[in-house]
Amino acid sequence: MRPETPAADKSGACLSAAEPANSKCVSLSSVRYEPNRIARLGLGAWPLMCRELWGARELAARLFLRNLKARYKQALLGFFWALLVPLLAVGTFVLLNRAGVLVIGPTDVPYPLFALAGLTVFQLFSTGLVSSCSALVEAGDMIARVNFPREVLVLAAIGQAVFELLVKTALIAAACVYYGFLPPAGALLVPFTLVPLILLTLGLGLFLSLANAVFRDTAQAVGVLLTFLMFLTPVLYPADGAREWLFRLNPLTALVEASRDLFIYGALRHPLDFGLASAGSLLVFLCAWRIFHLVSTKVPERI
């Protein structure tokens, strides 16, 4: 069924005299689609992944802005929603602590400040995971009909979580003023200790978004698991005590504590744990990205 086309020129597209004058004369990129295209590239896929992601940075930013605007446009309380959950959670714990129902050990800063800091960092992880989990499914229509790097959807979802973290930072600042606590200079390094946590969130988010594209139960499961995970991580209480070794097994402990330690003490109290958790996070991210890139071509037909 081959058409009777005369021998065609090789790609490259820029031809000299024969072209009409008004035709665009640029060298065009060629792409060849075939089964298992990405898998065949092997390690050569990494430059392609980086190129694609870099090329899509504007799209990621645009989608992030879109979600942000749309989210707060029709909401009466707007950005205040981002603050409501930590306020309620911390308020509950303060009450329980005062009433003696829950005994939380002494903290080096006023407890509400301690809890707010921990919760803010943890919620970067949890909201990031929840929103990236449904990122692919929510954009199903777009995925099925337009070709673009799917990673941007997860990136935009994580961007939302990072944005909420910034909003909550304002809340923490207000609390600092209220309790008269001046964070040490080391607190300025917190953005760096957040990077591994963001990478971990991205990695798991990429992975879970794929899983959710095939099994919609994933999103529900993630919601349930995250609730438990928060109580297994020293978010609202310090890790010190008899059961500390248990918390240490949880890589999130090191990641959450690192930022809070910087904020309170200006230094890391468990640098080794943090280093290990960071390396692990990087590894999770790289693996998940690779898998995502490899498999995301199969997503449009499954969504």
Partner: peptide
Amino acid sequence: GIFMPDRGSIEITGKVGGLIHVGAGFHPML
């Protein structure tokens, strides 16, 4: 390039504009 072929190959040179779905990514609220 949305569906990968399960056999054979497709070679495309240049930027593809798909009107398979107009208004992709339009958000109703915006």
